[in-house]
Structure formats: structure tokens, C-alpha cells
Amino acid sequence: MTNDDDSRTLIFDRDTDNLQELSEYLDVLSSSTRLKILKVIERSPKDVRQISAAIETSYENTKKHLDKLLSIGVVKKEAGLSRPTAKGIHPVWKYSLVPGGLEAITRSLGLFSNLQLTLTDAVLAKRLAGVREAFSGEFSGQPPVAILLGGPEDGRAFPLGHDAIAIGRADPDAPGRAGQNIVLGEEYAAVTRVSRPHARLTRSRDGAWLIEDCGSTGGTFVNGTPLDRSMRRELHDGDLVELAKGAAGATLVLVLPGGAPVRDAA
């Protein structure tokens, strides 16, 4: 990744398996039927017959789609009991989302598409954009989130549910702040405590998200560019926000549904 504010580019080494693994991941999520299955089991476990009835396809076809979803780790199956029938109640496999499964998909698609991969395979780039659009459409209504990258809390998602959100490290003297703010663990030692925030997110009347540095020691950077103290900068879908530099800092990727469109990959 470069420090150029307009590039935000991650480059794959063609000798690695990253592109092949990404292609396989997209193969699983590119099916509208599989996305419907995720929606059906989003709130409660269901067996294959219940799922097949809900998505209006055969038992055999449903089972094949579930096996694909199991392969990427977003669905799990556990023994349960069937609904009562004339033959009684019997054990069945019930399928459900793994905890944080939808967030994991959002994070994965966000990292690969929002951070603007330079893909030599243009077809793969278009597939990536299409899968993300389909996933967002099926699970519309989700709030914008900031996803933590790296460190012991890697992958943690913070929904942006308030118009003003302080960002900082946990403060023992202000334990009640975690509910409406982004509060990080002690391991992110270069981040200022939340009682005197490192940075602050605010939502404008037109729905845009802005970030400002609140006088932190380590600084706040958007796509590698430092913010001046008390300077507000508008954020867009896929922007990287760094709170201080180095291993003790923290990096957030912003996933803002309905935000500014991401440029096509080069």
C-alpha cells in the first residue's frame, strides 16, 4: 500500500495463492441462492427441509449450496430436533451462521474491494464488485461500520450508530463510554484514551461521515495522510484510518453503505 492519498492500492504477488483463493471465495458467494440461504438462517438455525422450503428449491440442491457455504466457514451445522410429524420427532442437522459470519463476509469483501486491489485479472475485479453489490443488496439496512485491522482484536466490527463517536483506548476511569464509542483494548498503547479522544467521528446532516484528530500524540492518518489538529475530513467507503503508527497503533477500515463509489480497479 502506498502513502498516496488517491491510490490506496494493495498489490498481489502473482506467485502466491491469494488470487486463486479469492476466486474460490467469490464462487461461493456469487450465487443468489446461497445469499438467500444466509438470509433464511440469519436469526435461527434451520434444517435442510426448512431451508429448501423457504428458498423454493429441492432438498438436494439446498444441500449442495450448504456444503459450499460450510467450505468458507460462514455456516455451521449442529445436531437438533425436527419439527413434530406423523412419524414423531427425530434428530436432524441444523444449519446456522457462525457468530460474526456476516461481519466476516463484510470484512473480507471490504478489504479486497474497498481498498482497491490492483488485479491483473479484470474479470475477477468485476466479479468482486458484483458479489459485494449483491451481498449488500440482500442484507440491506445494515449500519455503517468501522472494522479493526491487526492486533489482538483484529476483525472486530464497530457499528456507527450515533452521530458523534469518540475513538480511543479503554479508560478505567470512564467505563461507561464503550456503548456509543469505538473503544480499543490496552494493547493499542499508542492510541489516546477515550476520555480524551484520539479522534472523533461525526455524521453531518446530509449523512456524510467526518473525522478529526483531537490533539492525539501519535496523530491520525487517512489513507496515509496526516490530519491537522481539529481539521475535519470527509470519509468515503473503504478509507483507511490509522490511529498512530507502528505496532502499538490501530488501523480501521470504514465500510459505509451508500457512500461514494469505489473506483474501478486498474
Rank of each mutant, 00 (worst) to 15 (best):
N3G: 12
D5G: 08
D6N: 10
L10S: 10
I11A: 06
N18V: 12
L19K: 02
L19I: 15
S23Q: 13
S23N: 12
D27I: 01
S30F: 06
S31Q: 08
V40A: 14
E42Y: 00
E42N: 06
R43C: 09
S44F: 08
S44K: 13
K46V: 00
D47V: 03
A54C: 02
E56F: 06
T57H: 03
S58F: 03
L66E: 02
L69G: 11
G73I: 01
E78T: 15
S82M: 07
V92L: 05
Y95N: 02
S96D: 11
R107F: 05
R107N: 10
Q116H: 13
Q116Y: 08
L117H: 04
L117E: 00
T118I: 13
K126H: 10
S140K: 07
G141C: 10
P143F: 03
P144R: 01
A146F: 06
L148D: 01
R156H: 13
F158I: 02
L160P: 14
G161E: 07
H162P: 01
H162N: 12
D163R: 15
D163Y: 10
I165H: 07
I167V: 14
I167H: 08
I167C: 12
D173N: 14
N181C: 07
T192A: 15
R196I: 13
H198V: 07
A199M: 11
A199S: 09
E212C: 10
T217Q: 12
P226I: 09
M231P: 00
M231N: 11
R232H: 13
H236P: 00
L243P: 04
A248Y: 07
A248Q: 10
R263F: 05
